[in-house]
Amino acid sequence: MTTFTKAHIPALAGRTIVVTGANSGIGRAAAGMLAAKGAHVVLAVRDLAKGRAAAATMTGDVDVRRLDLADLASVREFAERSAEPIDVLINNAGLMIPPLGRTTDGFELQFGTNHLGHFALTNLLLPRIRDRVVTVSSTGHRTGAIDFDDLNWKRRAYRAFPAYAQSKLANLLFTLELQHRLTEAGSPVIATAAHPGLAATNLLGHLDSGQSPLRRLRTTLIGLLAQSEEAGALPVVYAAVADVPAGSYAGPGGFLQGRGAPKLVGQSRAARDNAVAHRLWTVSEELTGVTFPLTTASGERTSSPPGHGRQIP
């Protein structure tokens, strides 16, 4: 099989690609590669100044728009202002093991941003998406579990990495259920996922904050072993533009999927649990008030009814 590199990215003139969190890290690297190949790339960012600074480093047709995934009102506003057809949506923005925080709507910050914000954004934009949705997960999903009794860490003592792992598992379960619903609706759009492996991005910034010398040493070693932002972005670009199957998952092909050229990789058993994926989707609809917008050929809705102000678990 041919190794996928930047040289294999096809010409993308006439295509519009939205990348969330594109002001830094793998989002910025992916957006730059896609713009350089002729795509109209929308940088969907929380900080417009940082987004414009990132856009200034790119060659091609780049637009910067404000999107705060930790605020559902901002998600809705972004969707309302995005009237043009979108070929690819890349759900890249994310937080990794910050201190306990809450979104504007009261969700635990990682679950609310990494999963619920992208869940709402995807469904609001879906009628305008023509090709695919790519959602960025992590190898950390393998230790994740969906705690439906306490999704937002209100009853338990907060633990940053388990909360992160839950959100990354939610990304893959979202992709699984989204593809199921797209297939039921007869849509040509596909859902895919990717992870960057061990990439040296600003997400690693939280790892050494307030930790012991031993843990700071571990963080330093991780930084030395990590591949570049551009290398970490390649699996995401691969999932976005290559001829990959619906529902597939791309990541680095090297040792423990930490680095290397992108290829299709496996997921945990938990990430392939259709029952949990369906339940998470239903709960996510209730929490966000956003539902799957497409219908089947017979005109039936493929989603559960919209929520009615359910209390945050």
Rank of each mutant, 00 (worst) to 15 (best):
G144R: 01
D68Q: 09
D71H: 10
G140C: 06
V18L: 09
E77S: 14
Q179M: 01
N23G: 09
F119Y: 01
T302I: 12
F148Q: 03
N202H: 15
D87G: 10
P235S: 07
A73H: 15
Q257N: 07
A250Y: 03
A83S: 13
A271V: 05
Y238N: 05
D71L: 15
D87Q: 06
L182R: 04
R15E: 13
V64K: 06
F119L: 05
D61Y: 09
A250L: 05
L67G: 04
N92I: 06
A160M: 15
T103L: 01
A270Y: 02
A157C: 09
H195R: 00
R52H: 12
D150R: 05
L221A: 15
Y249N: 02
R269A: 15
F111W: 07
V62L: 07
H141A: 01
T20R: 01
D273M: 05
E177R: 02
T192K: 05
A239M: 04
F161R: 12
H40M: 15
H180F: 08
G223S: 14
T201G: 03
A170L: 03
R65K: 08
T295K: 13
L67Y: 05
G94E: 03
D208C: 13
A29F: 05
N274P: 14
P10S: 09
E84Q: 14
N91H: 06
A297N: 07
A157N: 11
E77Q: 11
D243M: 01
R215S: 14
A270T: 06
L225A: 14
Q110D: 04
A79H: 05
A239H: 06
T59W: 08
T183D: 12
E84C: 08
D149P: 08
L95R: 04
P306L: 07
P262T: 00
E300T: 03
R272F: 06
A35H: 06
A261G: 00
A29L: 05
R279N: 10
M96A: 13
R159T: 11
M58S: 11
